[in-house]
């Protein structure tokens, strides 16, 4: 076997994204611990994340409805494998809990971290509540994680 040559390159992946109006209003709401969904006048689905058009009916969406910061755990996992945080490129060590949470007043589920990371203490159907960051910045990680309610 002849010599194999490889070339290593480290590339900076930069981005600058516009949110659009719906996500801007939603994000501003987070600064006041307010969660809002957009509801479709056709199928009545309440969308999170809010977006301008219903994916099912293709109708424009403009009816904002309030959503609670409490909800029900629809699905969960505890991640043991260290995983990369896509915001920073840094590794996030396990174990950490993750859940699909149906917030009261929304039809979509929200993917977020859980305060609990013991599989034996997690179950589908548990009630959970958002734990907010002290200094709110108008971003999804204003919610640090969800804690299990008794």
């Amino acid at each position: 076997m002849s010599e194999r040559i490889s070339v290593a390159i480290e590339m900076a992946q930069g981005w600058r994204y516009s949110s659009g109006d719906a996500m801007a209003r939603f994000s501003e709401g987070l600064r006041r611990k307010r969660i809002e969904a957009l509801q479709c006048g056709g199928c009545r689905r309440r969308y999170l994340p809010p977006r301008p058009v219903c994916g099912n009916c293709h109708l424009p969406l403009s009816d904002w409805v309030p959503v609670s910061d409490k909800g029900t755990l629809e699905a969960w996992t505890v991640v043991f494998l260290p995983f990369l945080d896509a915001r920073t490129g840094e590794v996030r060590d396990g174990p950490y809990g993750m859940g699909l949470i149906r917030l009261d007043g929304s039809d979509a589920t929200l993917n977020h971290y859980l305060a609990e990371n013991d599989p034996a203490r997690l179950a589908v159907g548990m009630r959970v509540r958002a734990v907010w960051r002290e200094e709110l910045r108008g971003a999804m990680d204003d919610i640090l994680h969800f804690e299990i309610l008794p």
Binding site: Q13, W15, Y17, S19, M23, S27, P49, E74, A75, W76, T77, V79, L81, F83, L84, D85, A86, R87, M98, G99, L100, N111, H112, Y113, L122, V124, A139, M140, D141
Partner: peptide
């Protein structure tokens, strides 16, 4: 896999593995 919607789920993305695992409990 983690380069998802930066406004919504990039902060909580856990790639293919986390996505699968989440649905499995259900």
């Amino acid at each position: 896999m983690a380069l998802t919607d930066p406004f919504w789920d990039r902060a909580v993305a856990s790639g293919a593995l986390g996505n699968f695992a989440l649905s499995i409990s259900q």
